[in-house]
Design a protein around this nucleic acid. Structure first.
Lengths: 210, 210, 210, 210
DNA sequence: GATGAATGAGAATTCATTCAT
DNA sequence: GATGAATGAATTCTCATTCAT
């Protein structure tokens, strides 16, 4: 019957204090989601964790889902940003792979928990799923592109289809982020990065620059 | 989840009809979980999907969690069983890898969705997590063992630490199962199996038997 | 974000006990609405007035608005029914007017409070408004038709436009129902019926059958 | 509505700017009430419609009810004022009835929506109801008085009890205001005034001055 | 065993009012 | 005076579980 919504859509904070409160809510929400999953992700607990009162939650977010969307967007943005910096610095292809894998792993480290929750999300919607697919695609394309360049330089096996290879090797890294950071298999991050890189290099038939 | 409990613990079904009803509930619960996630996994919907009335649910299960435990145990058992058959039949190491990957992928295909849900499960308990870790460990050990044999036979790179290698390559396969079957990336299963096997073989430096 | 609704739409009661409970809720809701207005019309108070627990409300109604719709439909139906019986029995035109006004007044007596609430309804929707307009229209048409017959028989002023006349005289009766039953002006029902009838008869220039 | 109150009672505005702000709030509140009913009548929306900030509302009004009282008093005052001017000017009794009905209809046109809301008002108090009854009574007495004069002059049916007649005919006009202005029956105002007057005149047996 | 109804604690949301700047 | 933020009690709605037949 749609009781006419009289609540205004909560606007962006105008004052510095407002911004701080809003940020605190986003941070608290994300922390709860990452560390304690769905059950802890309630407006009440988020507000409490952010040190504000129950009602304040609704000063900044239309609903619980609104906060979720905000968090996911932030995570996605972080990953986009993370993907821009870095791995192109080194000169040696193998070092680049190591750097890339390290960056990859770390990028997923923060995102993985939230992304997984949303992926199967009780409460996710298609917009969010779309966002996740875009993030993933970004990484796949960067990986495929890197492989293609190596192939053209005669430094990697030319038989390998770049996109599929990037998907498969990306899957490896993503899942390892989950195994290490969420399941907490007692593995050393550096050891994993090195090992993955070794396997990755061998898998694509990496040759040292002649 | 725990609410106070005064109900008698539901016993195992005695009659054939009872067994059928119980089986229908388990099947319906699993289907709902796999296809529609947590939100659809309610006693009411499970009962409806199984074609029985609401109250009947509690004739066979103490609680929603009880059904979940039952389902997860069934999934785990299937995976144990799946891991026993098959891939040791071929003689050629590469063919064995292909077979193993195909089996692996399929084993995860059915399980992956349920396992992921339970992993972060709002309502899961440690027993379930434990069960999942055991299943995973089983696959890791089988992988590590296979690699070790290849190394001893001089057919694979002896530098690789078997267990870590098995974890990493297993991660690759598990995540690909998710990508294909849950995220529905439009990839051909055979193509993926072949590609993964090629990468896997190259990664461990597989040599044909001399 | 549309949390997918997992609640089934509450079905019609199957057992006699269920029907009794549902009826009790409808009756309690209507009584509260009529006697104490919107503020008392809460699921909690309705349930309590019906002697059932809070949650039972939602066994039979999807929402508060659902109950409201049900009540309004019942009121509308009553008025349709009330309009079918009665006033055509008498032979004498004036007596028929008296009977008609009495019926009219009584029909509105029960409905008026609910109808007015819904008309301006905080929570009403267009379907309900439509329903109210239909009820009103029914009475208008019956009134217009009655006048037309009197005119044709030469018993009433032929100059009067029947529909507008029916609207205006109907307005008089409807508002009097409100004045008497809601505002509780201390007026005697019979006196009012007689007076209205006298005015009505004079207004349309009613002549005794020659 | 009462919540505990520690705020100082807002004083009357001192400056011209203050008066303008206050007037804007009253006007906005009334407009919202008339056009969109209770649900839109919130301090927040009133403030927004008046172009001031949320908090400013409480600079001028102790509470939402305080504004409501202010609005109702304004409406009542308007109606008192409207009742003073006009209809006594014409000489011919029928013309006076027409004028009176037109004034009546217009007086109610603006007031009707607010008055009806308050009548059943979720949050109204007895003071307001009292005010409404006084306004109505004013009109009833004026109507009764007018009829009495006509009766004494031999221009109207002496059998009619003046007060009851005034109540009934007043009800007719008031409800027609509602039908036309709120329900928006597509009726021409002049046509309705003329028709009502004709019926009214016939009803009281109006005779031309001999 | 099977069924549909009943229960009530808990989660999400609203909004009149107060506070700090 | 004006502003935007903060508050929290009250309300609606959910759903796992228990009960009566």
């Amino acid at each position: 019957m749609g009781r006419s919504r009289t609540n205004p859509a909560p606007g962006a904070p105008v004052t510095a204090r407002g911004r701080r409160t809003r940020d605190a809510l986003v941070a608290a929400g994300r922390r709860l989601l990452e560390t304690r999953g769905w059950p802890a992700f309630t407006p009440e607990q988020v507000a409490q964790a952010a040190g504000v009162s129950y009602g304040t939650f609704y000063t900044y977010f239309e609903s619980k889902d609104d906060l979720l969307r905000t968090i996911v967007r932030a995570v996605a943005e972080e990953m986009f940003t993370a993907s821009l910096v870095g791995p192109e610095t080194a000169d040696d292809p193998y070092t680049r792979i190591v750097e890339s894998n390290r960056g990859y792993l770390r990028a997923w480290r923060n995102a993985s928990r939230v992304l997984r929750l949303v992926e199967q999300g009780a409460d996710s919607d298609d917009t969010l799923r779309q966002l996740l697919l875009e993030v993933r695609e970004l990484y796949v394309q960067r990986g495929a592109e890197g492989l293609r360049r190596l192939q053209e330089a005669g430094l990697a096996d030319r038989e390998l289809e770049p996109r599929l290879t990037a998907i498969v090797l990306g899957a490896m890294v993503e899942q390892m982020a989950h195994v290490i950071y969420s399941l907490r298999e007692p593995l050393d991050e550096d050891a994993v990065v090195n090992h993955m890189s070794k396997l990755w290099a061998a898998a694509i038939g990496l040759r040292e620059r002649p």
